[in-house]
Design a binder for these strands. Sequence first.
DNA 1: GCCAGCATACCGGTATACAGGTTTATTGAC
DNA 2: GTCAATAAACCTGTATACCGGTATGCTGGC
Lengths: 248, 248
Amino acid sequence: MLADGEVLAFMPAQKNSADLAAIPFAELETSSPPAEQIFRQVRDAVLQMQIRPGSLLSETEVGQRFGASRTPVREAFTRLREAGLIVTRPSRGNFVTRLSEPRLREAQFLRSAIETAVVIRLCKIGLGAEHLDRIKMSISGQVTAIADNNDLDFQAQDDRFHTLLAAATGYPRTAMLLAQEKTPLDRLRVLALSDRGHKARLLSEHRDILNAVRARDPAQAQAAMARHLASVLDLIADLRDADGDYFE
Amino acid sequence: MLADGEVLAFMPAQKNSADLAAIPFAELETSSPPAEQIFRQVRDAVLQMQIRPGSLLSETEVGQRFGASRTPVREAFTRLREAGLIVTRPSRGNFVTRLSEPRLREAQFLRSAIETAVVIRLCKIGLGAEHLDRIKMSISGQVTAIADNNDLDFQAQDDRFHTLLAAATGYPRTAMLLAQEKTPLDRLRVLALSDRGHKARLLSEHRDILNAVRARDPAQAQAAMARHLASVLDLIADLRDADGDYFE
DNA sequence: GCCAGCATACCGGTATACAGGTTTATTGAC
DNA sequence: GTCAATAAACCTGTATACCGGTATGCTGGC
């Protein structure tokens, strides 16, 4: 088995085909449409960096990998394209996009814009008992994940915390939009190995946000959220230098 | 030719097929992909209420109308579905969505969240000379449109004003996202016959926003924008009662 | 006249064949 | 050995045939 660096030395990055055989895709279920499942699985693989940025994703190959024809794959690719995860160059192929610093900064801007508006609204309409319970459970989950030093679980609970806040506004599309717009940041996060102290800080910030919302203090809630989300910007420069191949 | 009310009297709303022949679609050009053109033309027809909310859009029929096969139509429909303009009921058909008051309120929330963040950022980074010129021209255009009592032109210049502000942030996707998320409001606006006084008020608000941004006063800019955007909420209840068929 | 049951027509979902265009590899001349 | 020209192998874009499922309208029994 060759190391990544050696492979790169022999092949120009642009020509690299994605190594689909190495990715543990689940077999398609009959419960939901194949196009939907292919979209989700390929999206997650791209987000988790299992598919190298810059690599070629062939409709035919992906279809064969899932045992489906090109038609559902094309539909999945349409959605990946809109999510900004691939770019299509006609007659040449679909390529997994690289991370882009301006794009990351814009994602942070949009995320911050929406999430601060979310907490301000929550201060206004109040937090229902059910929503509050679920958010508290998410925070408990974060505590457990830190104790277990389980990065993956912590990330999942982190996402859940923000999703639950958005859902509590009663605006279903807002949660969806947030998930969509933060995808560039998700790829960044995979590159960052978070130490226990970093996670502890995030947890503390989550608590600050929740407390401000419970106190119905919009100014403080907004400030806490903005502070919390701005922290990712510090990661960009470091990671760009460390993982140059993954950036534009 | 029958009046709309008579047609409705004979056909249950749900069964109505869209009358594609009556819509002045342009012929497909060779310059851009058919799927893209079909998407844009159908989207605009839906936004301008040329296709009745609740009506059935058949892939086959749309394909025949444009002289294309189902494949590009399917791709266009995928995008319309994500834009929330149609819903697909498997084995039954694609239906143009009706306006929904909760959905409209959410669109207003999201638009306000993003646009207030935009003007705050503009106060921070300042407005370049080129951007300022273009925005001023847009406002001049609004003045002209009001003088000519040209509603369509005023709406175009109104959109342009907001788009230019978003573009001035240097975040290209933000402008795109705004356009996408305000589509429900665009359909609402078509139903509203705006009198001259209403347009004059919007223009005045635009000037307030621009002045606050030029003065680099984030608090005032945010307040002016929020006030400006909140005004559409007043329209919802009236239009819902007047055009009941168009709402859920 | 009413209602249940069935045949039919229509829809989207999928697979596949073909077309147009780009890249890559090979081959031949120099 | 080098380079240009050509052919093959890809890619996406498009058209089309077939499938299963749903809605509908007709028909026959009551």
